[in-house]
Amino acid sequence: MFAGFLASSIGEESTVDVAVFPTSLAVSGVADIMKDTKIKVGVQNIYPADSGAFTGEISASMLTELYIDYVLVGHSERRQLFGETDAQTNEKIKAILKNGLTPILCIGETLEERKANLTNSVLERQLKAGLMGFAKEEASRVIIAYEPVWAIGTGVVATPDQAEETMKYIRQFLAGLYDGDFAESIRILYGGSIKPDNFDSLVAMEDIDGGLVGGASLLESFVQLVAIARNHA
């Protein structure tokens, strides 16, 4: 099982934070494998209500009995394919924080929005709505993941300079929402066609704190990505 391979290959590393996000059917089994390692486990989505008639959904409160630490929120596929709104993303973050878990808020622009010079306004909207109603202390528990939609699963990756420019803008905007100390301390990840041959130059950038890895996380090369991150820790 791939989870067992990761546990034996990088499970004892402690210099960087590593988390895996299996499908819902595999979460329990993977969490059990990882519980005695340094690797954390997250889920790809939750429903914001703790209980109710929501057939097929998983609530954040259901996860508290498992070895779960993280929850992805607002991934572009959730937004585009399932119509998830900024308001729904905000509700999910509230539920995640209430249950003691860490949300990873995904933000990013489409190719059309980038070509129309709307990148900054799109990110501002997503950040402002996603963090609406959260005091600085609550918001500091959120991790931001910048994933340009045009780079997800396409093989196209933002250049280090493109990614750094956008990440720096994100920090500036967050400083305006809260303050400079908050903007400096919050973790911001880059996602979008990350591979061992491009990750080193990305994570070397000042404002990129790590990666949210897609397809490469399903391959043995994920171990290489962890090693690269460790070199920059």
Rank of each mutant, 00 (worst) to 15 (best):
F5T: 14
R78K: 14
C106S: 08
A60G: 06
R79G: 09
A31N: 03
L97F: 06
D17H: 12
D32F: 09
I104E: 09
P48E: 15
L63D: 05
A53H: 02
E91R: 15
E91D: 15
I170A: 10
G180A: 08
D209Q: 10
G155K: 02
A175G: 15
S185G: 07
D207V: 13
S221H: 02
Q224L: 11
G130M: 10
G130S: 04
Q126A: 02
A227N: 15
S140I: 03
I33K: 13
T37L: 10
A135M: 10
A145E: 10
G153A: 11
V223P: 01
G211H: 03
T23R: 14
V122K: 05
K98G: 05
G210Y: 09
R171C: 01
P196Q: 09
D50V: 10
P103D: 08
Y190R: 01
L111D: 13
A158F: 02
K40H: 14
T166K: 08
I170L: 11
A53G: 04
V142E: 12
A129D: 12
I39E: 12
Q126L: 06
V30T: 14
E138P: 00
A204K: 15
A19D: 08
T154V: 01
I152S: 08
D209Y: 05
K168L: 13
A116D: 12
G210R: 06
E164M: 02
R79M: 13
S59W: 14
D161C: 01
T23G: 13
E164D: 08
M34D: 06
G83C: 03
M1T: 15
F222T: 05
T166G: 03
A158Q: 00
V41R: 10
K94I: 12
L189T: 07
T154G: 01
L81K: 12
K35E: 12
G191Q: 11
G52M: 08
E184Q: 13
V226M: 02
I188D: 06
C106Q: 07
G153Y: 10
L212W: 11
F5Q: 11
F5P: 01
F21C: 12
N117V: 12
I186C: 03
A116T: 04
A151C: 14
L101P: 03
E137Q: 12
Q44L: 11
A53N: 02
G155R: 10
R187K: 15
D197P: 05
F54A: 11
L189K: 00
N120F: 09
L81P: 00
T119P: 04
G214F: 09
A19P: 08
L202N: 01
T37S: 15
Y47E: 14
K98V: 08
L97E: 04
G180R: 03
V16E: 05
S8F: 02
V226G: 05
G215Q: 06
A216F: 01
S61F: 07
T159D: 04
V18M: 09
F82E: 07
I96W: 06
E13A: 05
Y70Q: 08
Q172Y: 00
K136A: 09
E147T: 06
T89P: 00
L189W: 01
K115T: 13
V149K: 04
V203R: 10
L202A: 05
L63G: 02
L81N: 04
L219N: 13
S8W: 00
I93G: 05
